[in-house]
Amino acid sequence: MSEDAGPTVSRRGLLRGAAGTAIAAGGVAAVGTAAGQSGVDFDGWFSDVSNFDGVVDRRGQGEVTVEVGVEGNGDYWAFGPAAVRVDPGTTVVFEWTGEGSAHNVVAENDGYSSGDPVREAGTTFEHTFEETGISKYYCDPHLAVGMKGAIVVGDMGAGADAGGGSPGGISLSEGAWLLVGSLGLAVASPLLFAAFLRYRRGGGPSGPSEETREQLQRVDEVDQGPPRAEEAPVEKPETTIEHDEYDPSGTLSLVLGYLVLVVLLWVFMYFVEFLGRGPTVIG
C-alpha cells in the first residue's frame, strides 16, 4: 500500500504546479489519463472522481470494507477507498456512513446491486469477488458527480503504480486559487489604474487637462483656506412652465402605447404560450 502511495503523491505534487497553468491554458487539466502508464488501466473510469488516489492494496485479507459516503466529489459523495485490490474469493463489505444523502452500490456490468438508495448509517451490502479482473461500480444517484469505485481482483498490473486518475480533486483546489487570484487582480486593477493616473497627475509631465489647470489657477488665487468644492451653476430653463399650463400629452401617449403593448403581449403569453401549449396541471 505504502509503495503505491509514495510515487503517486510525488507525481501529484508536480501536477499541482502544472495544473494552474493547464487550466489557464484552456481547462485541459482534466484529461490526465492512464495513457503511457503501466499498472491498471481503468479506461477513464476515475477521470471525474476526486478522491481516487491509486489502488489500495488489501490482498491477503478475507474480508475487506469499503465505506459508502466518504468525503469527496464536492460532498460526501465518494467510496472510500475508491479503488482496492483484493485476492480472488474475497468478500467486500460496503458499509454506509450515513453522510451525503442516500446511496447505493451498482455494478457497472449489472453483476450486483444493493438495490434502492438508502441513507441509514451502518447499512451494509456484501459481495464476494471470485473472478480476477476489474469490477467497476457506482452510486446511482451520484454517478454524475463522480461517485464511482472499482475492485481490482487478483494481481493484474500489481507492483507498478496504478494510474488512471486525474487531478480532478486538485483541479478543484487549483481552480479555486486561480479564481481567488484573478478576483484579487480584477478588483485591484482599477485601483492600480487609478493610482497610476494619480501618480501621473502628481509628477508626470502630462499633468491635469487644460481645463482643469485653468480652474486650479483660479481656485488657487481665491482660496487660501482648506479646499472647498464649488458646485456647477444651476441650469436655467429656457422657458418656465408652471403646473396649470402644463399638459403632459407626450407622456400620456407614451404610457398608452406601453399599455397597448402590454395588453397584446399578455394575451399572447396567456392564450398562446401558456394555454396553447402541452399538458397543464388540472387537478
Binding site: R198, L216, V219, P226
Partner: peptide, 11 residues
C-alpha cells in the same frame, strides 16, 4: 482625484 479643486461638474 484631488479634493476641492475647481468646480464640481454637478450642482
Amino acid at each position: 482625484a484631488e479634493r476641492g479643486r475647481g468646480t464640481l461638474s454637478v450642482n
